[in-house]
């Protein structure tokens, strides 16, 4: 892959075990800075696991073991000298189900900012710019102090994206961000993800082939814990290199 842009996230011979069960087998992958990379593959192939290895959120489970390296912006996130808090500041994650906190819209958006000792003066500006970036400002500007759980699922998911922005992450991990939404919400969030392209490096897990095709520039295909193919999205869907990829794209797996 002779591409000039540096890797924002880089897996080097990365393997992961849940107890004795190996979920990831020696993955090598360079995710290009500023691009949207989608990850596809059948259920249980390790997409979520790989994504969750980048911000080490799997670690709460006491029985996870890893081998190899994950580098974010050139730094190994599993190295002892790198602070997990700083890693997570650079790497935001959006979950499958919108997980807004039981706080007001305002407190949700500013949660990360306040954690990292952001100044009080900056709050209003950050709040507005985060909500504007996710195209939510006009919907909620009159009810910033209302509870966020009262929003529609689509709005909640946008809020979950907006919540990451005030601490200025460089990378956004999204694990099937649209799977809890209706078609209209899916379209809106997809559009939003497309809008964020360039400003952030986005790693997007999806089950929806059409979504991968519409909303990503690069595409990764995984199968049973192994990385099978990684190319430009257009190419993957037109002329996949590996037969397994072709089978999957044409719907020959479940």
């Amino acid at each position: 892959m002779a591409d000039q842009s540096p890797a924002a996230v880089e897996f080097a011979d990365f393997s992961l075990w849940y107890g004795t069960f190996q979920a990831i087998y020696g993955v090598d992958l360079a995710v290009k800075e500023g691009k949207i990379t989608s990850m596809i593959g059948p259920s249980g192939c390790g997409k979520s696991t790989l994504l969750r290895s980048v911000n080490r959120i799997n670690e709460r489970l006491g029985y996870v073991r890893t081998e190899g390296h994950v580098r974010v912006l050139g730094h190994d996130v599993y190295a002892a000298e790198n602070s997990l808090v700083q890693v997570r500041k650079q790497v935001g994650m959006v979950f499958q189900r919108p997980n807004v906190l039981p706080l007001s819209i305002r407190d949700n958006i500013l949660f990360g900012h306040r954690l990292h000792d952001g100044g009080k003066d900056a709050e209003d500006a950050l709040l507005e710019s985060a909500l504007r970036q996710v195209l939510l400002w006009d919907d909620v500007k009159d009810r910033l102090n209302r509870r966020a759980q009262g929003l529609s699922l689509e709005q909640q998911q946008k809020l979950c994206i907006a919540r990451l922005l005030p601490v200025k992450p460089r990378i956004l991990l999204m694990d099937e961000p649209c799977s809890a939404l209706d078609p209209k919400g899916t379209e809106a969030v997809e559009e939003l993800i497309w809008e964020l392209r360039g400003a952030y490096t986005i790693l997007l897990v999806t089950h929806n082939m059409a979504q991968a095709r519409r909303a990503s520039e690069e595409c990764v295909f995984m199968l049973m814990g192994k990385l099978i193919e990684h190319t430009a999205t257009d190419q993957m869907f037109v002329s996949p290199r590996c037969p397994e990829t072709a089978d999957y794209i044409e719907g020959r797996y479940g």
Partner: peptide
């Protein structure tokens, strides 16, 4: 809820 928090550092 916890994951949302950890995830923000």
């Amino acid at each position: 809820f916890r994951e949302a928090c950890w995830n923000m550092g």
